[in-house]
Computed example of a mutant assay.
Amino acid sequence: MTMTAVLTDFARSLARHGYPADPGRLHTAVAGLGALGTIERQHVYTVTRAAWCTTAEQWADFSIHFERFFSRHPAAAAPPDTDVEIDVPEALPGDDDTETGHPEPQAAAASKAAVLRETDIAELLESDAADARAQLAGLRLSPPQRRRPRYRRGRADRLHVRQALRELLATGEITSLPTQERREVPRPIVIVLDVSASMQPFHTTQLAFAAAAAEGGQHVSVFTAGTALTDVTAGVRTARPGTRSGQIPDLGGGTRLGETLQQLLDRHAGRLRGATLIVMSDGWEDGDTDALTTAAARASRLCARFLWVNPRAGRTGWQPDIRGIRAIRPHVDALLPGTTISDYFRLAAVVAG
């Protein structure tokens, strides 16, 4: 039985459970697996999840359907070195892109990009990882807005009483009713990247995300945290992607999250006040977790929002049982996954509110 036939049966099974019965989704899955060539069970799961799931809330339910269905199809659980027969059908229902029905090269490329976007970054080959990171170039981090505390003259419904009194004292009459408004400005965004050895598979991707975010304006600050705190804001804005990691002195070293967060609070409290703080770390802590708890509590009081991104949180079966995660969890506004490229785009949506 070919993989195409298996996926067709899987599509029918999903449709019976309320998933979209759109033939284009089946076409996307078949073309994506065809673009990958040699596959394994994890690839099948990633491709089909990308094709049929439109929200993160659907993942858990989809995983149940996937395991239940593909446990009856051993061909989908082939080991990595086994070639699985994948036939792109001559015509899928509702597909009339070409006379022969074969997917166009652009469609296959788009399908591969969708697959890479949903694949665990740590499992990507270097060439595929570069293609996946390239998608982050189009990411823009739109900061939430805040109103200035002081009013300024402008077009609004609030009467500018002082200006009206000045005009009355100067001319003896009020010829117009001046108004005032509180202007909105972007909230600062502070990104802290864990560059310890345990985060090595995600270093380049996180730096690419930080670079895309920093291009959005001067309100974005980027720091790295390993054994010490390093301000790399200027570096990620100006350096080429391949040279950004060279500016980090403690890259691939140990982890002292409590100490580095405390350094950030002590030295850059002005940047953090009212800001959105994003810490990207798996929570492995070599230092004292009490110091991490204290720093996280202080950061939550100082910042408008405190987001923690764990690159391993998106994996099936992950549990927040690492002591560093247990230490910070009561003090963060959200604990988000950073496992795939799609997770970083969802993070941008969360930041924008």
Rank of each mutant, 00 (worst) to 15 (best):
V190P: 00
A60Q: 11
W318I: 06
Q58A: 11
A132K: 05
A114I: 07
L336G: 01
D128E: 15
A134V: 06
A137M: 05
S281C: 06
H219S: 10
V195R: 03
T260Q: 06
I328N: 00
I121A: 01
D87P: 00
R182C: 10
D290N: 13
A51K: 04
L124Q: 09
D343T: 04
A113I: 08
Y45T: 02
F10T: 03
I39S: 04
I191T: 02
S176R: 15
L272E: 04
I86S: 01
V279T: 07
L251E: 14
L141Q: 05
V232L: 07
A60K: 09
R162A: 15
P105D: 12
H73L: 09
A75L: 15
T4I: 03
E99T: 09
G246R: 14
K112V: 04
R166C: 09
R182F: 14
V44F: 10
L261Y: 04
E126L: 11
G258A: 07
R16P: 01
I278P: 00
D290V: 14
E215I: 02
L7A: 02
H65I: 00
E123P: 00
W59R: 09
R68A: 13
Y19N: 03
A211G: 08
P241T: 06
G216K: 04
Q218P: 09
A296H: 01
D131W: 09
G226F: 09
R326S: 13
D128L: 08
Y45G: 01
W284F: 14
L229T: 07
R256N: 13
R158A: 14
A297H: 15
E184M: 14
R150C: 03
L159G: 03
A296G: 02
S142N: 05
A109S: 11
R41M: 09
S196I: 08
G32F: 03
V309R: 00
A77V: 08
R153I: 11
D290P: 02
Q106M: 11
R273P: 03
A35W: 08
A156D: 15
R133F: 12
S198M: 09
R152P: 02
D81C: 05
L177Q: 12
E67Q: 12
V279L: 14
A349D: 00
I174L: 15
R273A: 11
P337M: 10
E184G: 05
G314Y: 09
A214E: 04
W284I: 05
F62L: 04
G324V: 11
E104Q: 10
G254H: 03
A75K: 13
R323C: 07
L336S: 02
A334W: 01
Q135K: 02
L7D: 00
R25F: 05
I325P: 02
R240G: 06
F345R: 02
T98H: 04
Q200W: 07
I121R: 00
L257D: 01
R148F: 04
Y45P: 00
T179E: 12
A21N: 10
E123Q: 08
L261E: 01
A15C: 03
T227H: 08
Y45N: 03
G226A: 12
R182G: 06
I325R: 06
P80C: 02
V47P: 01
D266T: 12
T98F: 06
L125W: 06
T82R: 15
G317L: 03
M199N: 11
A213H: 10
S342V: 09
E90L: 06
R68E: 13
H331P: 10
H331C: 10
S221H: 15
V309Y: 00
I189T: 13
A21P: 01
R271S: 11
A197N: 08
I64R: 12
V332R: 05
A109F: 11
V332W: 14
